[in-house]
Design a protein around this nucleic acid. Structure first.
Length: 838
DNA sequence: TGCATGAAG
């Protein structure tokens, strides 16, 4: 397997981008300006007073505290190193903020609020309840009677679990202004949509409001986040605010890590985890309320979740424990969510970021300007900013991929030679997900004196990480997006223009600590042509895994599915054909437009992998190579295990390492050998010497544990094939038979067996790219400059022939009959335990 | 011959 090379030697020789020393002023002119973020002056509009009605707080006894701690330690797995660091730094930071705020007292408004109205000098022992001074609800129901925590006996029950609540305070947030209104709306609506920009405080405050409104009486409050880091850090922040430990009243649950206990009332979770929970208990009875955070990101999981929760709400409305749903989004396109949720109530919350000046390129002045030269323009723009902006203001540049990023970093470093003596040094810092973790950390280090840090990043810096000290953003306006071509089952990775929302998000990264500037390497006219929002993930991915999960939940006809953005019919049919070919579903005899899960499909659902990978695991039982299949499939779930860039090693060295693990059978067996080796001896030095990404290797081994656990629950015996790799290759071929190819000597390309019109190449990173065997199966098909098969294994054509001919028949309207045959072909596999549900 | 945005279970 070839080692991932970030900036290979052959590229260095023909570098495309040159630096034009005089081009700075001509290329970019900050003529048009606008402000994307507005200062919020209403923040201090609320006078904090002691309402005189606060309930008596009962402290948790020492005994109880010990019990919580014991339970927590028992349940807790060790934290991942990065998450540990993140957790401690967040807590430290929050503590610091809290101390500072208490010192300066409430009379000093925190920036950037401009209100001169002073706070009540008398500090309330409790932040709440306040006298209702915010916007009152229009109805006659008195707010206090709804919102007062002491209004019911159950509320007191919840509140007794909040130890030392009054010890803490936090900076004022825009959401405080609408707190009373929110309390009222929470109590009176089943579904609520909250629109609030970054910094409004909705992610931390709304769940706490729910608890105070008594919603936690009948079950926990679930908060879904699209990212692990968000779930972990929000939980720790809210825990500090509520004066409890993570894992007490506030907890989080992400993959591999569950920091919740029976006491947990607010659970921050990744949306994928909630989806998994729904598969096991479809009505989600443990939760009284589900809050979908960052709904505007339109992640696949959150879209599916909204669809499921709508149904779940209908069901639970009949019972005694109705489900409350809160959808939180940053975009102002509330109407889409509103109409989806039957005209649900919308509450607007203002955001709070520092003002940002936005500059666009003016094409009238820059006649030679072309936005497609964005890499070249980036270098010029950095130089312009570096020579004109105050020293110490760091720059964040958005580009599309590692190759561009490394090229710009290289050129910026060279630029230092031609700078005036008075100028600071430019310190380029690349940042992208595939970068080694220690290299990634460079972006967060303090900039040394006499230097300006220029972080050159992919969209990882848009939402996933926040870099302190950034005052200037340079936005290329481009992003790499993977879309799915359903007709040919191909992933296409292409550079696209960003959306307006995304451009705004990027600009906002300059205003985290102080007022900032954003230079856009495209004209105002171009910007107007951009899409309003990002394309929802559900419209650009393979739907087979999602449909399998939804069928487990009882969906029969995917064409009738009520999603917020329904996928194209062609895409739906492709997923149904794929699932039927894999034997996971079959059309109903009574109604051919409806489908049912097969026994095998039911088993597939249990594994958190795609249906074809699940089928590999399933077939491995018949072949007697379950251990090997689990190892390979888990290694396939992570990104490239071989990585790290070629910066310190020459090409010969890369070749030498690559050969060490190479096998004649293909990349999957190579993966297996690597995993088996690292199982025996695995340390940092070994990973460094062999350019293996330690983090990814750890993830793979955690997935391996997870898959093993599921196999145990399914009562699958752990068979092993020893050195007989034929068995595992056969399992891979049968599981992923849709990806089998035949070599065409004339064309010197491979033809996809299910559709010979499609020809492709083996990706150069594969160990079979040179040997070109007659028949192969691959894990993934990716279209970049050409069509490439990734992760390839040598197969015997007889293994896949019957499956392929059935698949072809299915496409020509023999779906039902062929589905039956597929079942028969597969049913020779040993019987296994039926899944618990249904 | 020639290369991989970002999340998630």
């Amino acid at each position: 397997m070839q080692i991932k090379s970030k900036f290979p030697a052959w590229k260095k020789k023909k570098r495309k981008f040159r630096i034009d020393k005089d081009g700075i002023k001509n290329k970019l002119n900050p003529v048009s300006q606008s402000s994307v973020a507005t200062q919020n002056g209403q923040v201090n509009g609320v006078v904090r007073q002691n309402g005189g009605q606060e309930p008596k707080f009962l402290n948790v006894t020492a005994k109880e505290k010990k019990r919580i701690k014991r339970r927590k330690n028992k349940n807790k797995r060790p934290l991942l190193q990065t998450e540990k660091e993140l957790l401690t730094s967040t807590v430290q930071m929050t503590n610091g903020v809290l101390k500072k705020i208490q010192k300066i007292s409430l009379s000093e408004p925190s920036p950037p609020s401009t209100s001169s109205k002073p706070e009540s000098p008398q500090k309330s022992p409790l932040p709440r309840p306040k006298t209702p001074t915010g916007p009152s609800p229009s109805t006659s129901t008195p707010v206090t009677s709804v919102a007062s925590p002491s209004s019911t006996s159950q509320n007191r029950n919840i509140l007794r679990h909040e130890p030392n609540f009054d010890k803490f305070d936090r900076p004022q947030l825009p959401i405080d202004v609408v707190e009373q209104q929110l309390m009222y709306e929470l109590a009176s609506h089943e579904t609520l949509i909250i629109i609030g920009e970054t910094g409004s405080g909705k992610s931390t405050q709304v769940p706490q409001l729910c608890v105070r409104a008594g919603l936690a009486d009948s079950g926990s409050i679930a908060v879904t986040e699209p990212r692990r880091v968000a779930a972990v850090s929000l939980a720790s922040r809210v825990a500090v605010e509520m004066g409890t430990d993570v894992g007490g009243i506030v907890g989080f649950h992400v993959r591999f890590e569950n920091a919740t206990t029976h006491k947990t009332k607010i659970e921050y979770m990744t949306d994928g985890i909630v989806l998994r929970k729904a598969l096991i208990s479809p009505l989600l009875e443990n939760y009284s309320t589900v809050i979908i955070d960052e709904a505007h990101e339109r992640s696949l999981h959150s879209d599916v979740l909204m669809c499921i929760l709508k149904k779940c709400q209908e069901q639970r409305r009949k019972g005694k424990n109705p489900l409350r749903l809160i959808v939180m989004s940053a975009t102002l396109q509330a109407d889409k969510f509103q109409s989806y949720f039957d005209n649900a109530k919308v509450v607007l919350v203002s955001g709070r970021t520092f003002p940002i000046e936005v500059f666009h390129v003016n094409p009238k002045i820059n006649k030679s300007f072309s936005s497609s030269d964005y890499v070249y323009n980036t270098v010029i723009c950095v130089k312009h900013v570096h020579l004109n902006e105050p020293k110490g203001h760091d720059i964040l540049v958005f580009l599309t991929g590692s190759e561009e990023i490394e090229a710009v970093a290289y050129q910026l470093a060279e630029l230092n030679g031609s700078l005036p003596a008075s100028a600071d040094v430019i310190m380029p810092v690349p940042l992208y997900a595939a970068l080694r973790p220690e290299k990634q950390k460079e972006a967060f280090k303090k900039t040394p004196q006499g230097a300006r840090k220029v972080i050159i990043s992919t969209n990882i810096a848009e939402t996933s990480v926040t870099i302190p000290g950034v005052r200037v953003v340079i936005d290329s306006g481009k992003v790499k997006i993977k879309t799915f071509e359903a007709s040919n089952r191909i992933d296409v990775l292409k550079v696209h223009n960003v959306s307006k929302a995304q451009a705004k998000q990027r600009a906002g990264r300059a205003g985290r600590d102080a007022p900032g500037k954003c230079y856009r390497l495209y004209s105002r006219e171009d910007f107007q042509k951009f899409e309003i929002d990002n394309m929802p993930e559900i419209l650009r991915c393979n739907l087979s895994a999602t449909f399998l999960e939804l069928m487990k939940l009882g969906m029969k006809n995917p064409h009738r599915l009520q999603l917020i953005d329904p996928p194209e019919t062609e895409n739906i049919d492709a997923a149904l054909l794929e699932l039927t070919s894999l034997g996971a579903i079959r059309p109903l005899n009574s109604d051919k437009s409806k489908f049912a899960l097969t026994d095998m499909g039911d088993v597939f659902c249990m594994y958190p992998v795609s249906p074809d990978h699940a089928r590999v695991l399933f077939h491995a039982q018949k072949e007697g190579c379950v251990m090997e299949a689990i190892k390979i499939i888990s290694a396939m779930q992570t990104d490239a295990l071989f990585s790290g860039g070629s910066d310190s090693k020459n090409d010969a060295e890369v070749e030498r390492i690559r050969r060490k693990f190479e096998t004649r059978e293909g990349d999957h067996i190579t993966l297996l050998k690597l995993v088996l080796t690292t199982n025996l001896f695995f340390d940092e030095k070994f990973c460094n010497d062999n350019m293996i990404n330690e983090q990814h290797l750890k993830t793979a081994s955690m997935i391996e544990e997870q898959l093993k656990q599921i196999a145990i629950e399914q009562e699958v015996p752990f068979s092993t094939c020893g050195n007989d790799f034929t068995k595992i290759r056969k399992s891979l071929a049968i599981g992923m038979f849709l990806n089998s190819c035949e070599y065409d000597r004339q064309e010197d390309r491979y033809r996809l067996m299910i559709n010979p019109a499609i020809t492709l190449k083996i990706h150069p990173s594969s160990c079979l790219s040179r040997s070109k065997p007659a028949y192969i199966v691959f894990s993934e098909l990716m279209k970049t400059n050409d069509l490439y098969a990734l992760q390839v294994t040598l197969i015997d054509v007889d293994w896949v022939r019957p499956l392929i001919s059935e698949h072809k028949k299915m496409r020509t309207n023999h779906l039902a009959e062929s589905a039956q045959r597929i079942q028969e072909i597969t049913n020779s596999a040993p019987k296994r335990k039926k899944a618990k549900t249904e």
